[in-house]
Write a protein that binds this DNA or RNA. Structure first.
Length: 578
DNA sequence: GCCGTTTTCGGCCCGACTGTTTTCAGTCG
């Protein structure tokens, strides 16, 4: 039986985007004109940036970067489910060449030559050609190139392409503490996807300002690791950990620091857009400054803010420098949340369940951070592996917290719970117990592989309970490790709005859950957000920084986030259902 | 392949580094 669903099932927007990207990859491998290749990539990005669904778009050529040619490709694909352009390319280019693009130093042009001249069709045949020493005989190739490719082939498959940000942050901090000790360094900063706080990161980028580049370079080479690149302005190190971590240092003059930082922060699309804007004004942006193309005079800036100001733009936070559209859309009026806006942390654990520090130690740590309030939210009974609290224990902890509130007059401690949503949808505690607490977080820690309908039934039960204030880590994802359970995000957001339930941004860098696009949707729908560290350890309280930074990616404003509110406002809100 | 109120042809962001070359192509971010 054919249903409406079947008819629409065919091709969706994601499929089209993937098709265009695939065409670009094949063209690249064919050694096609790079601008033509880029045109397909641009078209894919532009389609993705368009808010409409495929069926809502009537004329593809209205979308920037999509012209007659690409529109015809899309239309054929949507109507027939196939693309003759892609099919043609696939006939000409062996599929096995695609993974070769992963090898550093190999681009489309080179791969095309390897195919034509040595009949390399996949990883295996490239390996053979290398082993036979045929590669070095090719014009423009040499022993070194062959060696590099051999090494890369050995690495392949062993090492992931990108690493979760949580994996990279400890390395970052180590490097930063080293850089702080190098006295010739005047100023340094994270750059690249690290500074933009991407969820996964390929390599670590730093920009360094100094008057003594040679001395700095020497110091950098003393860091553990092998130097892969070592030029006057750039040092690349390969740190050996579980994997090889690549770290780029860009060394510039202090006067060039602001423009270099902007340049190396990216994203690539953001930079392209900025340079186009400069060009329209008769200027040229490079990492060294802004050049007036007529006079040749190069202007540098004290800060990134001054750089943006030069183009009559507000300082755009690195976290939102993405597809270039932020340049048009961001204004200072849309002020995004800052760490200083945060007045408390509303999700943390103690030794009562699976935390590493006592109640009082966590309180002391939060006082040190200058918080106005905090919530203790240990696990509930169901989560036995985490030492979940029985109702009796909850009441006992509640009493203890009340007593501690007498002791401290500079911080208010909310008595709470992180209550499990059980696999069958029931909640772990009765309403009566919940009503005794200041704050109730509900979350899923079990049966991740249930169908979407059951997951949504569980979430719905939690959202509709008047005592539940927050849904923690709403999708359960762990970046780079698991996708999380199946959530109908539109439904979740709608329910959160209806029931005035808060959705959490879990600031643990391994989670960052909700994802920024969902945060953005939630905020647009008027749903309240909370940024919590879910600390199981005092040091985890520092994740607030990461959480706030990540929230910016969703263009989150302070007013949307309940833990920026004053204590009385917050308490009044939490009492709404009780 | 896309784009255009300086352009319908000739650009398309810009520069560093490597490995191979004796002046530069390809790759990378």
């Amino acid at each position: 039986m054919r249903t409406v669903g079947d008819i629409n099932m065919g091709i969706n927007k994601k499929d089209v985007i993937r098709l265009l990207e695939k065409i670009a990859i094949y063209m690249e491998l064919k050694g096609e004109n790079p601008f033509k290749t880029a045109a397909f990539r641009k078209a894919a990005a532009s389609l993705e940036a368009d808010d409409r669904s495929l069926s809502e778009i009537t004329n593809f050529t209205e979308i920037p970067a999509i012209g007659k040619g690409t529109a015809a490709v899309i239309e054929e694909f949507v109507e027939d489910g196939v693309s003759s352009v892609l099919e043609q390319l696939q006939e000409e280019v062996p599929k096995g060449l695609i993974p070769l693009l992963q090898i550093p130093g190999l681009g489309g042009k080179t791969i095309a030559r390897l195919y034509k001249e040595l009949n390399v069709t996949d990883v295996e045949s490239l390996r053979e050609v290398c082993a036979a020493g045929k590669l070095r005989k090719l014009k423009g190739f040499g022993k070194k190139t062959e060696e590099n490719i051999k090494n890369a082939l050995e690495q392949m498959g062993r090492q992931p392409d990108r690493f979760p940000i949580a994996y990279m942050l400890p390395f970052t901090e180590q490097i930063e503490s080293y850089l702080k000790e190098v006295k010739e360094i005047k100023q340094f900063s994270r750059a690249g996807s690290l500074r933009r706080l991407s969820e996964t990161i390929k390599d670590l980028d730093f920009v360094i300002a100094t008057e003594h580049p040679k001395a700095v370079k020497e110091q950098l080479l003393k860091l553990d690791g092998e130097a892969a690149v070592s030029g006057d302005t750039k040092v690349t190190l390969h740190l050996q950990a579980d994997y090889t971590i690549s770290v780029d240092f860009r060394i510039v003059k202090p006067s060039e620091f602001a423009t270099a930082l902007h340049h190396f922060t990216g994203s690539a699309e953001h930079n392209v857009r900025m340079r186009q804007i400069a060009k329209e004004r008769g200027e040229k942006i490079s990492e060294y400054g802004v050049e007036n193309t007529e006079t040749g005079k190069v202007e540098t800036f004290q800060t990134e803010k001054d750089f943006f100001k030069h183009f009559q733009l507000p300082w755009i936070p690195p976290e939102i420098r993405m597809n270039g559209k932020e340049i048009e859309h961001f204004s200072e009026a849309k002020q995004l949340i800052e760490l200083a806006d945060i007045k408390g942390d509303l999700h943390m654990h103690t030794t009562w369940s699976d935390g590493a520090y006592s109640l009082e130690e966590m309180i002391e740590a939060c006082r040190k951070k200058g918080y106005e309030y905090m919530a203790i939210t240990d696990h509930s009974e169901f989560l036995r592996v985490a030492g979940g609290l029985t109702p009796d224990r909850v009441r006992k902890q509640n009493e203890e917290i009340k007593a501690l509130n007498e002791k401290y007059d500079d911080i208010f401690i909310l008595s709470g719970i992180e209550m499990d949503i059980l696999p069958d949808g029931r909640l772990d505690f009765e309403d009566e117990l919940l009503s005794e607490l200041d704050i109730v977080i509900a979350s899923i820690h079990s049966s991740f592989f249930q169908p979407k309908s059951q997951i949504m039934k569980r979430l719905t039960n939690a959202l509709q309970n008047p005592h539940v204030d927050i849904i923690a880590h709403p999708t359960g994802r762990l970046i780079g490790r698991r996708d999380g359970y199946e959530v109908d995000m539109d439904m979740l957001i709608e329910l959160a709005k209806e029931t005035d339930t808060v959705l959490e941004l879990n600031a643990n860098p391994a989670r960052l859950d909700l994802a920024y696009s969902h945060l953005q949707k939630a905020q647009e729908a008027g749903v309240k957000i909370v940024i919590n560290t879910d600390a199981h350890n005092i040091s985890h309280l520092e994740y607030m920084d990461v959480g706030v930074s990540y929230a910016k990616k969703g263009w989150i404003r302070p007013g949307s986030v309940i833990n920026t509110w004053k204590k009385d406002e917050l308490l009044a809100f939490l009492k709404r259902g009780d």
